[in-house]
């Protein structure tokens, strides 16, 4: 499944791209004033999961490395934040940073080892690491409370910042924090793909042997991509734990390794906004499906099969190919 190429960034066109992304984020900012409460809450969730997918896309879409173990990074952030908050009463800001740090370290370790392999072996190695992580959350049940999970108290979610009292239980605040995180992830992706490093990552995806012969240490470049992708995923996990006051084993399960792949494929791999669109569509598709059937997994399965069969470039990948070649 080779993803489409990125076009050479050009002056003028590049500004159009920036405008589009700012526009999408502004639209999300405005949406909170018109959306009913239920959908605002859903959208908060979607934006956090979309951040996860944006991080995943950096590795899968742009670098061409298909990880089947990103639940490990999401869970590293989730537990990295929730465990100190639950056991030591850390407030949200240090807990959030702890989650990011945990994700960074896990990504660095797993990346350093897994990147010794390529192709199918890389997929299975990442799958195995994530499975070991999931089983560990069950095995150390006295710390993580396994499937039942940790419920964070309101106390750790209320804190003073610059003299203001911040309460993460407030839905409006949650919405805007999730949006801020998503905006940061999109900005990072845009910067990466428009800088020289982005060109190197795409080159590795297209032809690693040739990239090596151009003087690039592809192992190091791929490690940068894994760490960046893993850390963004962990940030999404940490924010999820703190904003929704819960961390459970199910977030470490194989499903949460598959979802970001699904969202990215659906929206369009190697497009900046594709994972966001994919997450949004999939979330509401399952939401709708659960209205008349409990069988939401079948929707996930069918969409996956249909995507690889008929639509391998995803929505925005196809849009770029047909109409908007400047789309980053």
């Amino acid at each position: 499944m080779s993803a489409p190429a990125i076009a050479a960034p050009r002056k003028g066109l590049a500004d159009k791209a920036i405008l589009l992304h700012v526009g999408v984020l502004a639209l999300l900012l405005a949406a909170q004033f018109v959306l009913p409460e239920y959908h605002a809450l859903s959208l908060t969730r979607v934006m956090l999961l979309a951040t996860f997918a944006v991080g995943y896309n950096l590795l899968f879409g742009y670098t061409g490395l298909l990880s089947l173990g990103h639940a490990l990074f999401f869970a590293a952030g989730l537990y990295g934040a929730a465990l100190p908050a639950y056991h030591f009463g850390w407030t949200a800001p240090p807990a959030f940073l702890a989650g990011i740090a945990a994700g960074f370290l896990v990504a660095l370790t797993v990346g350093a080892v897994a990147l010794r392999t390529t192709g199918v072996a890389f997929m299975i190695v990442t799958l195995m690491f994530a499975q070991a992580g999931y089983l560990a959350t069950l095995y150390f049940g006295n710390v993580t409370r396994g499937d039942e999970g940790l419920v964070l108290t309101d106390a750790v979610r209320r804190f003073e910042l610059l003299g203001l009292t911040v309460d993460l239980a407030d839905p409006g605040l949650r919405y805007n924090l999730a949006l801020a995180l998503l905006a940061a992830a999109i900005a990072i992706t845009l910067v990466v793909v428009r800088r020289p490093i982005g060109r190197v990552l795409v080159a590795i995806r297209e032809n690693e042997a040739r990239t090596l012969m151009l003087g690039y240490d592809s192992y190091r470049a791929k490690l940068v991509a894994v760490v960046l992708s893993g850390t963004i995923s962990a940030a999404a996990g940490a924010a999820y734990a703190l904003l929704f006051a819960y961390a459970g084993s199910s977030f470490a399960s194989i499903h949460y390794s598959i979802y970001p792949l699904l969202w990215t494929l659906l929206g369009g791999a190697a497009t900046v906004l594709g994972p966001v669109l994919g997450t949004l569509i999939m979330f509401y598709l399952i939401d709708l499906a659960s209205g008349f059937t409990t069988a939401h997994l079948v929707v996930v399965g069918l969409v996956l099969v249909a995507l690889v069969l008929f639509f391998p470039k995803g929505i925005l990948g196809t849009v770029r190919e047909r109409w908007l070649p400047w789309l980053p």
């Binding site: 080779s2 489409p4 190429a5 990125i6 076009a7 050479a8 020289p196 060109r199 190197v200 795409v202 080159a203 297209e206 032809n207 042997a209 040739r210 990239t211 012969m213 151009l214 003087g215 690039y216």
Partner: peptide, 27 residues
């Protein structure tokens, strides 16, 4: 080293192909 069997990045623009080399020299 330039390859005997042409080994360029077919999906990337000519510009990007050469820019990758330039960028390596600059780095």
């Amino acid at each position: 080293y330039t390859f005997q069997i042409t080994s360029i990045f077919g999906n990337l623009s000519v510009f990007d192909n050469v820019a990758l080399a330039v960028q390596s020299a600059l780095a």
